[in-house]
């Protein structure tokens, strides 16, 4: 009788032990957990409200479909043909007013690039690819992608660049020209916005002792 009770309790304990083990350590690592519980998010949180004030267009590149900000409405002097009523070649001359004097091309070197690498001199409302195909200003990323292919891959996946609003779907990503000035795309050197005077003092004192 005594023995039986003992066996029962041992079995019970073992059961509890095994059960709790399973519950507690259901996953061995965070990657197991991610894999185990992975499913497309259709929950209550969305970025829709945050995106409400931004004009967006949907693009599909390879297997990725997402939103990017509309561009043409943001360009101050669009449409270009309001001034560029004739092709650039015909407008070049003494009497035409000088324009775009503030734009200096600081992008690759002049052997590789000039204005016409991206702009279509015959049809100023359009951009053009290296082979002369027209590209809409809203899809200017396609021009960048011609040379910057690895950045393009990362951008499509979401490793390069920034979201327009929150993490929650729908995905809206800034496009190249939202962060980079296409005429001078690299980031400038500058001073950090923050300096911790308290840490500096503490460390100085630390050295003095």
């Amino acid at each position: 009788m005594k023995n039986r009770t003992l066996i029962y309790s041992v079995v019970l304990l073992l059961g509890i032990f095994l059960f709790s083990c399973k519950e507690e350590g259901k996953y061995h690592s965070i990657s197991d957990k991610i894999e185990g519980e992975s499913k497309p998010y259709h929950g209550i949180l969305t970025s829709e409200e945050l995106l409400a004030d931004t004009e967006l267009i949907e693009i599909t590149e390879g297997e990725h479909t997402f939103l990017i900000p509309e561009r043409k409405g943001q360009i101050k002097s669009f449409a270009c043909i309001e001034c560029h009523s004739k092709p650039v070649s015909q407008m070049m001359g003494k009497d035409a007013p000088k324009a775009h004097w503030n734009i200096k091309l600081n992008h690759a070197n002049s052997d590789a690039m000039n204005c016409a690498t991206c702009h279509n001199g015959e049809e100023m409302n359009q951009l053009n690819t290296l082979t002369g195909k027209n590209i809409d200003f809203n899809l200017s990323y396609k021009l960048c992608a011609q040379c910057h292919s690895s950045q393009f891959e990362d951008w499509k996946g979401g490793a390069h660049g920034k979201k327009v609003a929150g993490w929650a779907p729908p995905r809206a990503s800034n496009t190249c020209v939202n962060c980079h000035n296409p005429h001078s795309p690299s980031f400038e050197k500058r001073w950090p916005v923050q300096f911790n005077t308290k840490t500096a003092i503490e460390r100085n004192e630390g050295l003095g002792h």
């Binding site: 992975s38 497309p40 998010y41 996946g157 979401g158 490793a159 929650a168 779907p169």
Partner: peptide
């Protein structure tokens, strides 16, 4: 980059 690790369509998952 920030996001939902459980959502296979999230950008953070693409990075990982």
């Amino acid at each position: 980059i920030f996001g939902n690790l459980l959502d296979p369509n999230s950008t953070i998952r693409w990075v990982l």
